[in-house]
Amino acid sequence: MSGRFILFILAFLVWLLLTFSLSWENLLVGGLVSLFVSFMTGDLFTKRPHIFKHLQRYFWFLIYIPVFIWECFKANVDVALRVIRPSLPIKPGIVKVTTSLKSETGLTFLANSITLTPGTLTVDVDKENGLLYVHWIDVKSKDVQKATQIIVRRFEKILTKIFE
């Protein structure tokens, strides 16, 4: 039930931002639509609704955003420099890395962060063994531990604090 309530609040917030007016017709229609959506799909939204109450998770999420934007900017400059050089300095390959995250949201965020940061692209996730298959545009090490050290450790600490 609590998960549905959180989904209702989120949907209503997105509706308010989309319409950006506070007239009563908008509020009524938005409330009805959010009620419908949260009633239909509430059980798919979250399995552990109690973690939404922990305030320090939101704090760590605020710290995560600038880290993510900085890595993203570095990634783009890196790729742009690789693309415009005439010799195309790439050495691609698919490597295996391990992760200690367990929750689905955490794994999704980790995979998305890996995709948007320098030279790496998540290909597949093996949830039982905690493995990620990552396409790396410039393979620095084929060893699982070293690759994990280079690719995953940047985000894993902070994502553990947010989603576990």
Partner: peptide, 29 residues
Amino acid sequence: VFDLFGCLGLVRLPDVYNRLQAATKCVTF
């Protein structure tokens, strides 16, 4: 500028995975 570089990467890089790297990162950002 980043959009243009992303599409250049789409043209220049050799296989699907490298193209996905360049295109997704640069065009999204």
